[in-house]
Design a protein around this nucleic acid. Structure first.
Lengths: 192, 192
DNA sequence: ACTTTGATTGACTCGTCAATCAACAAAAAC
DNA sequence: GTTTTTGTTGATTGACGAGTCAATCAAAGT
């Protein structure tokens, strides 16, 4: 079987298996052996393609974030009006895919990691900055100078609603979108 | 040295040490030995007073939540107007004590635990329900029928802003209180 | 004095897991 | 046809950590 060009295939499989394992465990307390077994290889191979357990976990987190980033970009591409841009960002953040157990587990553990792991903190900062930038850009025509602070408020609402829906009874984002919209209307309604 | 009535003292010391250790590690990946050493006792004693590591961690989480609950209750006691009640809840949620590294670590890991540990999930549900109840009660005179949904929105904002401040550059809650107030004004401003 | 009882520990067991290594298989290169 | 490169694993190691236990110590009760 050992054909050429296995590297990217194995890496992808291992990352996928890592995410699945994290989702099943709910935490980063996963073993390399279990991951490797799920990917259909030996644990030694996981160490071969990734330096060690840490690198595997980082790669998994990075993959999750890149998927989310791509969804946001896709949502923004098809939006013409400022309001549609905001709605797109919100919709992407509350898309069904974001509420898969593995994705929820990844995000929550990412927050935990961001406390102490400089790499994770930096990555989180990048994604938060990008989100804020997108929101400010969309809000500028609607709110003028108040765009930055409203963006911060919306970003916090997105995070807060996500966690509440992720850990609450409703396993999807139903209602969250409407709640953000109502809040935005309220904030835009009152003049400077 | 072995006097009588050491049980509560040791338990308290062990809980305190556990929280400190969690704060230092940033995660629940702490060893009983380290905790016991920090509390000035042997690891065997930790197993003696608590059944095992799990119980120790649960006790620590429970303590953190009870401290927060007490702070909220204290804030509500000295508030007379509905608006003062809301401000009190918000102020308690963003009090300096809530942003100590150990407390932040506890909350973030509590979210992680709530995914899969039924006990943690139940505890979280209780505290969220209590927060929502307090908010609805305070909002009723101000918003009438819309109190429940506005409460949900405020609760999400509190959670979201907390996480952003906990993991962001600002290690305190400065600005968060004002942002909640502005959002609330917006939501109350527009009629049904 | 003697016994019971709570407090306390050091030493030990047992399991787990990350990481390493030597070796083997298959394809490619020469 | 040999050598090199790439893919792959089983077995092993070394460390670490949770939980147990028998034994010790000091006070309180009788």
């Amino acid at each position: 079987m050992p054909k050429l060009g296995m590297q990217p295939i194995r890496r992808a499989a291992l990352v996928k298996a890592t995410i699945a394992e994290i989702g099943e465990a709910g935490s980063l307390d996963v073993t390399v052996s279990k991951i490797a077994k799920r990917a259909g290889v030996s644990s030694a191979l996981a160490h071969h393609y990734f330096g060690g357990k840490q690198d595997l976990l980082v790669a998994a987190m990075r993959h999750i974030l890149s998927v989310y980033g791509a969804a946001v970009r896709r949502a923004l591409a098809g939006a013409k009006t400022p309001r549609a841009r905001i709605d797109g960002i919100v919709a992407a953040s509350f898309a069904p895919g974001q509420f898969e157990p593995a994705v929820i587990a990844a995000w929550l553990n990412f927050y935990v990691q961001a406390q102490s792991a400089p790499g994770a903190r930096r990555l989180l900062a990048v994604y938060q900055a990008r989100l804020r930038s997108n929101l400010v850009h969309a809000l500028r025509p609607l709110a003028g100078d108040r765009a930055p602070e409203i963006a911060e408020t919306l970003a916090a609402m997105i995070d807060g609603l996500y966690i509440r829906h992720a850990l609450g009874a409703a396993p999807d984002g139903q209602g969250a979108t409407a709640r953000v919209a109502a809040c935005l209307d309220g904030l835009l309604g009152e003049g400077a």
